[in-house]
């Protein structure tokens, strides 16, 4: 693809633009830059910082819950393919499925590098209850074939939650974890963009769905906020030190006009 591809596509008609950006070709152009030379999400020569036992345990607990979040995202995105309204959306979601699978893989690898011998058991041990409830709710929405509610819960709420947590954690993380999280955040930005774009167009055409999604948001927000509280405590960070975590989430969700 030519180097000026990105600037070119913005001159396209809306439908053609969507067709281009929701393609395997565009996905690969997007990820190649930050995945190339970074097996398992970080550069091989990034040096491991010595961690105290407490820091290591806290990091493992947080990473276990990130694995759950990514599994929820993987299951949600794959389930959404069946109910996506068109080919372009299906193809975009397939790229998202691979992204979520990769996130899960790099986080599992990080757990192994930190000395966790049985990640699946460790994850089960540390599972956050609110996140598991969120997983259940999202699955219900997808199985109910409710596209608008599912894409809202998955690509707006869940992705905004992960985006906010990972960005906040990356600011204080060890160098390897930071590189991994920064790579994931780049993908999450693309996923949120898809959700915002799809829902934005739907809301413009059928404003009445906003009320329904607001009700859904109000039911999911407590789960998100409880997960935030838990993550901060897992990382040993007080909420007053990082007020930006909730704000990032709220800003992202409110961009779509879903005020709390």
């Amino acid at each position: 693809m030519p180097e000026n591809h990105v600037s070119d596509i913005h001159g396209l008609e809306p439908q053609e633009f969507l067709s281009q950006v929701h393609s395997f070709e565009f996905w690969f152009e997007s990820v190649e830059g930050y995945l190339s030379g970074r097996p398992y999400g970080h550069q091989p020569d990034t040096v491991e910082t010595p961690l105290s036992d407490l820091e290591r345990d806290r990091l493992i607990t947080a990473l276990c819950n990130y694995c759950i979040g990514e599994t929820v995202a993987l299951e949600g995105a794959s389930g959404l393919i069946a109910i996506a309204p068109n080919r372009e959306a299906k193809i975009f979601l397939a790229t998202q499925v691979a992204d979520e699978g990769r996130h899960l893989e790099v986080l599992l690898r990080r757990l192994t590098d930190l000395g966790v011998t049985d990640p699946e058991t460790e994850i089960e041990k540390h599972a956050n209850r609110s996140l598991l409830t969120f997983r259940h709710r999202l699955r219900e929405l997808v199985e109910g074939r409710d596209w608008e509610a599912s894409i809202f819960a998955q690509n707006v709420i869940l992705e905004a939650m992960e985006f906010s947590v990972f960005q906040t954690h990356a600011e204080v993380a060890d160098p390897i974890t930071r590189e991994i999280l920064e790579g994931i955040v780049k993908d999450e930005r693309r996923h949120m963009g898809f959700g915002e774009n799809d829902l934005g167009r739907r809301l413009a055409l059928t404003p009445h769905i906003r009320d329904r999604l607001n009700v859904l948001r109000r039911s999911l927000d407590p789960l998100v906020l409880e997960t935030f509280e838990d993550t901060l405590s897992q990382l040993g960070i007080s909420r007053s030190e990082h007020p930006g975590l909730g704000r990032r989430y709220l800003e992202t969700v409110e961009r779509l006009g879903f005020a709390s």
């Binding site: 395997f24 996905w27 599994t71 993987l74 299951e75 794959s78 389930g79 393919i81 069946a82 299906k90 193809i91 979601l93 397939a94 790229t95 499925v97 691979a98 979520e100 699978g101 990769r102 899960l104 893989e105 599992l108 699946e120 699955r139």
Partner: peptide, 26 residues
């Protein structure tokens, strides 16, 4: 392949199926 992800009994199979899903979309 995307439908099988939710039915897969282990994380490794889910992750392989994630790559297969993208292959099939391609």
């Amino acid at each position: 392949s995307s439908g099988l992800i939710n039915a897969a009994p282990d994380e490794g199979s889910k992750r392989f199926l994630a790559t297969q899903t993208l292959d099939e979309a391609r």
